[in-house]
Nucleic acid binder design. Sequence first.
DNA 1: CGATTAATGAAACTGGAGTCCCGTTATGGG
DNA 2: CCCATAACGGGACTCCAGTTTCATTAATCG
Lengths: 209, 209
Amino acid sequence: MGIEDAGPGTVRPGGRTARVRASVLRAAGDALAEHGFAHLDLVDVARRAEVGKTTVYRRWGTVTGLVADLLLEMAEESLPRTETGSLLGDLKANARLVQRTLADPRQGALFKAVLAAATGEEKTAEALHRFYDTRVKEWAPCVQQAVDRGEIPQGTDAHEVIRAVSAPLYYRLLTSGDRLDEAAADRAAEAAVAAARAGAYLRGDDGHA
Amino acid sequence: MGIEDAGPGTVRPGGRTARVRASVLRAAGDALAEHGFAHLDLVDVARRAEVGKTTVYRRWGTVTGLVADLLLEMAEESLPRTETGSLLGDLKANARLVQRTLADPRQGALFKAVLAAATGEEKTAEALHRFYDTRVKEWAPCVQQAVDRGEIPQGTDAHEVIRAVSAPLYYRLLTSGDRLDEAAADRAAEAAVAAARAGAYLRGDDGHA
DNA sequence: CGATTAATGAAACTGGAGTCCCGTTATGGG
DNA sequence: CCCATAACGGGACTCCAGTTTCATTAATCG
């Protein structure tokens, strides 16, 4: 009975506490990109961040807890969205952005590690879902504009179209050893547009015309 | 210099050795499905398999090594493929199969764990890639048949079409909390067919007609 | 069937991840 | 500017995953 929880960092979040968090999250990202999720150890993160290991254990506790907080920060920094005037152009821009991110050695390894961490730990999974919801929502407007222009049918689920662009890129990253190139990105965008035109992403409909 | 490696289990693979392997792999699958990759510990696997922990460490060494062997076995047991006479019918059957597998609590958790394990460990990743190559190759013929029937353009990359069906299902499994239902499976199949018809999966082509 | 030795398994051992204790630092409120 | 105390950090401690050793069991070959 009474107010409980409110872990460390919630009462005096300014100054040192904020610096420690930034330093630890940066170190965690580096370590994840280098060693992967499986071999991440909090003592190493503490060393890199030049912070006492007690602090890391007290504030984040586990590897998955730390990744969850890292995802919160990653969700905040949003990337600028371009507008090309056509759905295919916008989705290609999106696909290229995702492709470049996943193909980059550091970023690609980091995303793989974060996905692995979200597997199995509910709290981390929720943070990951919020991260992708944020990204999808940022890009959904370009699909709605395409509907308004008459490029694709009324009632198209904008979020589903955006997800359709990323899906094959992530699938390829995880299940094949092939490199993610621009051709793969363009193909993903083209496939999504073709499917959207055919009404495959109509909301609350199973696709039968 | 000379012949080296050839670890335990390669000289006398019959009888007990085979029984131990089967028992350990089954236990590993159970443990992965229950606790996830992050919390898997080989001592627990040894206990479940009723096998000395020394044996597990000697033959598989690490968690990722054990998962790699598990994937080799998973690749061998192939699922029967149905033939419905139309590309959409065949791909829907494939999509439903994947969807049922991933939606099943045990199987879904196991696949998540296996994907997580393949992240970061090259040897495990290779085993995973072989597993998916096997599955994709099993289903590719139905796409070729569709080409022969004239449903989709000549020069369509059959493997890419099959991957396009699974991709959105895996993407949803990993990046959202939403349940994988039949509607999602059907939508994946329909989108793949629409994109294939539009020529998005032409081999060695970036999609421009 | 018996000899050879590959493979297993019990037990003792070790190193380091994670915890605990308590003194030190510096934030935020008055 | 000063006080109360939130948050940090060093170091000792614990516990168990992973290793090593060696005796026991059983697969293969003649």
